[in-house]
């Protein structure tokens, strides 16, 4: 078990390191000079030289990469080109907003998607199963930002049931939750479909397995078998999916945060792109990548602990 954890951890660190190297390469190998991008076309040679020195860009590339890497390890993601704030601080300020959105979005998707998938599997080929199947595929296929725009149009602009933009005043939890309803609905819709499909498939597989057949042979009530024996195993793949999901949702949050004009990581990145503030863009992207790798890793480990079959192999 310990070996497995160490192995997975090492792989995760390696993946993040490669991701960092790709990001670094992107700025430095791609044609176009990051300095002139930041300073604009009217920068004087002195300004450029001064900026290069301040950002450590006068050193050879391998040294720069090493410094970049060491800084990231120390938690220093560089500074905002304009305000001079630490990128890490900026990102950490916005992270709770995105995390709340992602958590609530996935939360309602789990609450609806798992029961839907479970019922579809038990009542296989019933009308409920068929309708759920078609709706699931549709929910997965339709882009999040189109869902968000239609939700904004219908529920905020036409019906005026929910506020259109913003996140509510800080400190007032009720109001903030109210502002989260439409964004969380939009971001979670596709995941309801994902979860319903996954749980259905995994439930069907589990229901045909030996331990379920044994339980049936013992004459245990069907309800008991379904929930105590089958669902417990069938639900495991959703843990992995949710680990991946959290990282993916943080990325999809860019659209949601812009459509509903909410603060968050996505809004931060978008605003920084508009002003060509690339240290903030890369810093936020690094944090989002780290979150993705971390959650995927955590999901795999939780999965290994929950599933007796996997646990015993380790």
């Amino acid at each position: 078990m310990l070996f497995y954890v160490a192995q997975r951890l090492a792989l995760a660190v390696l993946i993040v390191a490669v991701a960092l190297a790709i990001m670094f390469g992107m700025i430095h190998i791609v044609p176009g000079d990051p300095v002139s991008i930041v300073l604009g076309p009217r920068a004087t040679p002195e300004l450029i030289a001064e900026f290069r020195q301040r950002m450590g860009m006068d050193k050879p590339l391998p040294v720069q990469f090493l410094l970049f890497f060491l800084n990231v390890l120390k938690g220093d993601l560089g500074r905002d080109v304009f305000s001079g704030y630490l990128v890490l601080d900026l990102v950490l300020q916005q992270l709770p907003h995105s995390a709340a959105l992602a958590g609530l979005g996935l939360g309602w998707a789990v609450a609806l998607g798992i029961p839907l998938g479970c019922f579809s599997a038990i009542k296989r080929n019933s009308w409920l199963d068929r309708v759920t199947g078609v709706l699931s595929v549709s929910a997965i296929a339709i882009p999040t930002f189109v869902v968000a725009l239609y939700a904004l149009l219908v529920f905020a602009v036409w019906l005026r049931w929910f506020p259109a933009i913003g996140a509510g005043h800080s400190g007032q939890i009720g109001e903030q939750l109210w502002y989260l309803v439409l964004p969380a609905f939009s971001i979670g819709l596709g995941w309801v479909g994902f979860l319903a499909r996954l749980v259905r498939a995994s439930m069907l597989e589990t229901l045909s397995e030996n331990h379920v057949r044994t339980a049936r042979a013992f004459g245990l009530p069907e309800r008991w078998i379904t929930y105590r024996y089958a669902l417990r195993i069938a639900i495991l793949p959703t843990v992995t999916l949710l680990g991946i999901g959290f990282g993916r949702v943080i990325s999809a949050a860019v659209f949601i945060e812009i459509v509903f004009a909410r603060p968050g990581m996505g809004k931060l990145v978008y605003d920084s792109v508009v002003t060509q503030n690339y240290p903030v863009v890369l810093g936020a992207m690094f944090v989002a990548t780290g979150i993705f790798v971390l959650f995927t890793l955590a999901a795999d480990l939780v999965n290994a602990m929950l599933d007796p079959r996997v646990r015993e192999k380790l």
Binding site: I15, A19, I22, S251, V254, V269, V273, V281, M285
Partner: peptide, 21 residues
Amino acid sequence: LVFDAVRSFPTIMFALAVVTI
């Protein structure tokens, strides 16, 4: 390893970063 690293990028943020450059 490279595939895994690329897949772990948040797609839209990666896209925005590429656009800045």
